[in-house]
């Protein structure tokens, strides 16, 4: 969230919308909470509270770039952060805990890991509940007005491939979510690029300026690349049938179960226009060049 001042809200007043409220959430309310702030992003109202007011600066910094302050009292999601640490009286070590609504979604002695989980669940909650678009777990860049969407779970190599596409001149949409509207147009989910040195290493956030890249505002359907990194794998793209392609993208949809009709519409609209290829890959720089070459040919062919 950039240059926004978030007003604290009265934690005794804010509550979940009835659809999302559970008796267990009332139990969580019995714990002692401080302050809290509300944001709105992609049509989702999200409240934040913690047991320690010193946490709020850190938690604010983890809000999505597009988030705007929200002063209301009703939320689709309330994120609750319990700061752990050592109790000097009993020498007991407490976990840092992350709750999304009533559900414990993260627990770690290490603060940075708990904050990672907090941020991941903020993004996921917005992606799941958003009525403003269909969130696909994917890297996405814009090239000549068209989107290159790289759906994939963690460790599929999305961020590495996105970084190489940016180096090659593509403009940035996201390394986490491609957001599709009902016409299949891709809109951005801006965040720093999250890179890992290896599968077990923590993520390091990098500014896209380090890759000489700019942000894109939106992009028409261009090319979807369903691929997985595998050391030494050969680049061997295969054009997928549309049904198979939709299933591949659906497998990476965050809110597919909540809004299946809109999800299917958006995926159909996108794949009506964008060919979908699948391949294994191993060399991000070479593969980025190949992907751009394919999209260039596609754009030139379609005039």
């Amino acid at each position: 969230m950039e240059n926004q001042t978030l007003k604290p809200i009265d934690t005794t007043r804010y509550h979940l919308l009835e659809r999302w409220h559970t008796p267990c959430f009332d139990n969580l309310n019995d714990l002692e909470w401080h302050d809290g702030f509300g944001v709105q992003s992609h049509g989702v109202r999200l409240g934040v509270r913690a047991n320690d007011p010193e946490m709020f600066d850190q938690l604010r910094a983890l809000m999505p770039t597009a988030a705007k302050p929200y002063d209301g009292t009703e939320f689709e999601t309330i994120m609750s952060f319990v700061k752990g640490g050592k109790d000097p009286k009993t020498r007991t070590r407490h976990y840092n805990l992350v709750y999304q609504n009533h559900t414990l979604q993260g627990r770690s002695f290490r603060m940075e890991e708990a904050l990672d989980r907090f941020q991941a669940w903020v993004s996921l909650s917005i992606g799941f509940m958003s009525s403003a678009g269909i969130f696909i777990h994917a890297g996405a860049v814009e090239w000549r007005g068209h989107a290159i969407v790289l759906p994939g779970r963690s460790l599929a190599g999305k961020s590495t491939l996105v970084s190489e596409l940016l180096r090659a001149g593509a403009r940035y949409l996201s390394d986490e979510y491609a957001i599709l509207d009902q016409e299949g147009t891709v809109t951005p989910w801006y965040k720093p690029l999250s890179m890992r040195a290896n599968p077990t290493a923590p993520q390091v956030d990098l500014d896209i300026a380090e890759f000489g890249a700019e942000r894109a505002v939106s992009a028409r359907p261009g090319l979807v690349v369903l691929c997985a990194y595998e050391q030494g794998a050969e680049w061997a793209p295969r054009v997928m049938d549309q049904g198979e392609a939709i299933m591949g993208m659906l497998d990476n949809c965050v809110g597919g179960r909540l809004r299946p009709a809109e999800t299917m519409n958006a995926l159909q609209a996108h794949t009506d226009l964008a060919p979908v290829i699948c391949t294994q890959r191993s060399d991000a720089a070479k593969d980025a060049a190949r992907i751009l070459e394919l999209l260039d040919a596609q754009i030139d062919q379609s005039g």
Partner: peptide, 13 residues
Amino acid sequence: AAQAMSCIGDGVF
């Protein structure tokens, strides 16, 4: 939804 999120490090719930 949770299946489409980033992976979890060792020791984290």
